[in-house]
């Protein structure tokens, strides 16, 4: 097995005495595509917040891109997230008052990429995701949902993250656009050799992935309310 970009070991996370998430093991190898089936209430939000380093587990250990998150300060985790993680949400992914390009450049700035090289990379990446420079110059709210999601993909991948997390990114798209988006996203992540952790309850998308996991099965906490 190649190097791991994500390793969760013996995780226990919860509010007060009721654990939301108990996870024996979850690993993603470099460049691997993992489909994680996770309906609402399965502890998905908590898992994502843990991997992103926004919160720390009460027990267990999370390693992202070779770094144990618990050994970093809060600021260190924020920096680590900016550099090594790309995140795509369901929808409303963009800062509404910035142009598509500025959304991408904001991510570039936060992950320590200079403005000039950030712009160059953004335009190249956008072209591969079938976004023209004209579209990128538009304000986020003037873009269609499909275009917004592609800008979000550009933004998530601008720093060539080791791990790309996508949280139901296609739920707002119709079938045709969904398949198109998946093709573009996976092609580009492969080019960059970013691993993809794709969280969705839509099992039809599972076919695109190397490995399928099911969060309710993995999560020993049997939570009643997670999201």
């Amino acid at each position: 097995m190649s190097t791991e970009v994500l390793r969760c070991q013996d995780l226990c996370f919860g509010w007060r005495d009721s654990p939301v998430l108990m996870l024996e093991s979850l690993c993603v190898a470099a460049g691997e595509r993992v489909f994680l089936g996770g309906p609402s209430g399965s502890g998905k939000s908590s898992l994502l917040a843990l991997i992103a380093g926004l919160v720390l587990p009460q027990e267990g250990c999370i390693t992202v891109a070779g770094q144990d998150l618990a050994s970093l300060s809060a600021a260190g985790r924020d920096r680590w997230r900016a550099r090594h993680l790309g995140i795509i949400f369901q929808q409303f992914n963009l800062v509404p008052y910035l142009s598509g390009l500025d959304n991408v450049l904001l991510a570039a700035a936060l992950s320590g990429i200079g403005r000039a090289s950030g712009k160059e990379r953004a335009l190249a990446l956008a072209e591969r995701l079938e976004l023209s420079e004209v579209l990128l110059a538009r304000k986020a709210i003037e873009l269609s949902v499909g275009q917004q999601q592609r800008v979000a993909a550009v933004r998530a991948m601008i720093a060539e993250p080791a791990l790309l997390i996508a949280d139901e990114p296609t739920s707002a798209l119709d079938d045709r656009r969904r398949d198109h988006f998946m093709t573009l996203l996976l092609r580009e992540s492969e080019r960059q050799n970013s691993a993809v952790l794709f969280v969705s309850h839509d099992q039809r998308l599972a076919a695109h992935f190397d490995r399928h996991l099911d969060l309710p099965t993995l999560n020993g906490a049997a939570p009643c309310s997670g999201d």
């Binding site: 809060a74 600021a75 900016a82 995140i87 949400f89 800062v95 936060l110 992950s111 933004r155």
Partner: peptide
């Protein structure tokens, strides 16, 4: 609040 979550995801500090 959505915007704040986006900024956090991008690595912005609180």
């Amino acid at each position: 609040r959505r915007e704040m979550a986006i900024l956090r995801a991008l690595g912005a500090r609180p």
